[in-house]
Design a protein around this nucleic acid. Structure first.
Length: 197
DNA sequence: GGTAGGATGGGCT
DNA sequence: GCCCATCCTACCC
């Protein structure tokens, strides 16, 4: 019998990982590890936001000062402020000039768990610490100051994971939108207890 | 277990 | 002036 293996961190995902169709990137980010500074967690829920054809996307009405990172080169963070209180983090996909980004909706805390719990004093259980797009940015300490940051180097990166078990992906409609709401562009790791709901 | 309503401010019509 | 890619609390089963 092989002893239980603790999954380890792999290399930082390179830019060509993001230089692909946004739906493919959204699916493939599941199971990877989002890291900011001393904290990080396994991505268990994502959503794909397209460009000019997707009425739910910030990029739908064309380039603006707020959404310009979505139109830029892949492998950068798009961080926006929402509902007057929260920030959400995306990974930009598609070639430079084509809008597309993957919203990270939930992570399973993995690295620096104690610090994340301190940043989320209201979280009663570990599953409440980062099980939502606004919650995980607080837990990881991600703010708008990181908008446009290169996620192939620096404090905010995504790493692969070695030795992790295989999983199934569930696709369904995106959360919290009213326009273009029927497309199955939300992806979760089947059965994972850290998804937003 | 579940849901309704309020907080709170930037972005765009 | 209205609309949000949200979260928490209070309250009700």
């Amino acid at each position: 019998m092989i002893a239980t293996r603790i999954a380890g961190l792999g290399p930082i995902l390179p830019r060509n990982f993001y230089h692909r169709p946004v739906v493919q990137v959204a699916r493939d980010l599941l199971g990877k590890v989002l890291i900011h500074g001393a904290t990080g967690g396994v991505i268990v829920e994502t959503e794909a936001y397209l460009g000019l054809d997707d009425a739910a996307s910030h990029a739908y009405r064309g380039l603006t000062k707020r959404n310009q990172v979505m139109f830029g080169p892949p492998g950068h963070a798009y961080v926006y402020f929402i509902y007057g209180m929260y920030e959400c983090v995306n990974m930009v996909a598609e070639p430079d000039g084509i809008a597309g980004a993957v919203l990270i909706r939930a992570i399973e805390p993995l690295v620096g768990i104690e610090l994340m719990q301190i940043r989320r004093p209201g979280a009663k259980r570990l599953r409440d610490v980062a099980s939502g797009p606004g919650k995980l940015t607080i837990a990881l300490g991600i703010t708008r100051a990181l908008n446009g940051a290169d996620v192939t180097k620096g404090a905010l990166v995504v790493r692969g994971r070695r030795g992790a078990e295989a999983f199934e992906i569930v696709a369904g409609p995106r959360i919290g939108i009213s326009q273009n709401a029927d497309l199955p562009l939300r992806f979760t790791i089947a059965g994972n207890q850290f998804v937003s709901r």
